[in-house]
């Protein structure tokens, strides 16, 4: 066996194991940092306008339709949530922070009842400028929502640029949302 062959025989598997190890480490690391979720699905809505819909407002709120999202004065977020959803409660403080920093957030309550929704808003506050309700969940299906919370970034031309499924964390806002607000402002 030539020295080169011997080196290859030992080196190649070792290199493959090393690359795999580094890859898995990166994935696990980013999962721990809330920066990566392997269950996240890409949305077919990216680069498109939201589908046609018209949803009524929650009691005391103005609802909205797809035409209201056609040309917002500045990039904005549409946040799908529900009073019965635990991760939604987790992300509530982050939504308040974003709203306080001047970002427009419109909410859609998914398969919720007026009473439960009112109680939720009382407990966790209201970061939404408009709040629609999708009681049947059929509009959610047309948007491709597969769980709440989901947050959609919509640019000034009304086009969806990002769908984030799951609670917004500090890392997601810093690494995913803020660059978009800068890019599309």
């Amino acid at each position: 066996m030539s020295p080169l062959r011997r080196r290859l025989l030992f080196g190649v598997p070792l290199a493959m194991a090393a690359v795999g190890g580094v890859g898995f480490y990166t994935i696990l690391r980013r999962m721990q940092d809330n920066d990566y979720n392997p269950h996240t699905l890409p949305s077919p809505l990216i680069g498109k306008h939201p589908p046609t819909f018209a949803l009524p407002g929650a009691p005391g709120f103005q609802g909205f339709s797809n035409t209201d999202l056609l040309s917002p004065p500045k990039p904005m977020l549409v946040n799908w949530f529900a009073s019965w959803c635990a991760p939604c409660q987790e992300e509530a403080p982050m939504l308040h922070k974003l709203a306080a920093s001047g970002i427009t957030i419109w909410g859609i309550a998914y398969e919720d009842t007026p009473d439960a929704l009112a109680a939720y808003l009382q407990n966790f506050g209201n970061p939404y400028q408009r709040l629609a309700t999708d009681e049947s969940g059929l509009t959610a299906i047309n948007w491709g929502v597969y769980g709440v919370p989901e947050t959609y970034f919509i640019d000034k031309t009304g086009i969806v640029r990002l769908r984030y499924p799951g609670a917004l964390t500090k890392e997601v806002v810093q690494n995913r949302l803020m660059p978009l607000f800068k890019q599309y402002s």
Partner: peptide
Amino acid sequence: MVHRYGIF
């Protein structure tokens, strides 16, 4: 379905 949720 694919139109809404992608090929996944």
